[in-house]
Nucleic acid binder design. Structure first.
Lengths: 198, 198
DNA sequence: TTGTTTACCGAACATTCGGTCAGTTGACAA
DNA sequence: TTGTCAACTGACCGAATGTTCGGTAAACAA
């Protein structure tokens, strides 16, 4: 047969991608453990069993979602702007980039930040996340060592507070209204780098 | 023996208080929905049914825990130091006090910050929490109005970032090691009020 | 000794859970 | 018209869930 369909078949209904994106929204609303496959089915407008046509199961949905968040973070730390230049500039770039990723992949990062290690899938994600955290901690330590950030606060503590601020964005950010990613990163850097007091 | 027990009878085993404190620890480790009554029973060293002798059920445990966190926050906003004086000073006091409460009642506040509204209990807690958030938002707005914090960032956004930083402490703080509540509040205020960059 | 109370166990309850599977539907191709 | 196949349904499974309940061992009181 010679190319029966020039365009892709484009069948009705769902595919693995749409199932994932809707599932992650529900996970973030009710929590992963608080979400049943019945909940997902209702949100998708199909029966429970239809979900298993597209994806292998609940935990695989979680794993794919977490990878999406983590892949973004690891692409960032591989970038040249995160690995060369003055530490304070690299730190600023990483913070700005983190805000970007957090917003671009908001539901996936939100899910990642709530993982507690209840399964091997979650534990693996936690370990990858810790690796990212260690990268950032090294960066802050370097910036402290070359004297470009205040010396009167422990760098490890600084790292936690700084990225605590970044990560807290997932608790309230709504893409439809409010600041853009760049505006948000600007405001966050103003507070954390220069302080909010006049 | 004369006076067999001068102190209160001191019966063996658990009471509602010890069940609550252990339960909240498990809730924070595995998540509320991820915790089964069997998990709790194991942590308490009794069988599932023994728990129901001390407390009415799982959701009541959650409700009591959330009240403990929220009561602390509302005691704070009722204090004179939160309601009179220069706005920037009140804000600093509220931030410092919040760090204190967060650490003094760490497991309870941690649980509160993870509530998603999956039940009436959770929704009620969320509403009380929003009331607290509104109080802080007003405070930041006042400080912005009298010109004591930087005018180039929206006060509502500032509030979220500031208390995002405070609340993020629950994600990593361990009472046994690390900074004290006062040291931690100092470091946090240095970063958010004066900035980490030299 | 007998009775009462406290703190608990073990078995069972109905319900919900994640997941399976044989079949049905409907769009499209031949 | 017939056949194919992606997409889905509905009935069902065993396991796990939160909760209830009848019973009971130990401590103490009378």
């Amino acid at each position: 047969m010679a190319t029966p369909t020039p365009t892709r078949p484009r069948k009705r209904g769902h595919d693995p991608e749409s199932v994932l994106s809707i599932a992650v929204e529900v996970f973030n609303t009710r929590g992963y453990d608080g979400t049943s496959m019945e909940d997902l089915a209702r949100a998708l407008g199909v029966t429970k069993s239809a979900i298993y046509y597209h994806v292998p199961g609940k935990e695989q949905l979680l794993a794919r979602a977490l990878d999406r968040a983590l892949d973004g973070l690891f692409e960032m730390v591989a970038d040249e702007r995160a690995t060369s230049g003055p530490a304070i500039d690299r730190l600023e770039w990483v913070v700005r980039r983190s805000v970007r990723i957090l917003i671009d992949r908001l539901p996936y990062v939100t899910l990642l930040l709530r993982v507690r290690g209840n399964s091997q899938t979650e534990q693996a994600a936690l370990e990858r996340r810790r690796e990212f955290d260690r990268f950032v901690a090294r960066l802050v330590k370097e910036a402290a060592a070359d004297g470009s950030i205040r010396p009167d606060v422990d760098p490890a503590l600084m790292t936690r507070l700084l990225f605590g601020t970044v990560n807290s964005i997932t608790e309230w950010y709504q893409p439809t209204r409010g600041a853009s990613a760049d505006d948000l990163a600007d405001a966050l850097l103003k507070m954390t780098f220069d302080g909010l007091r006049i």
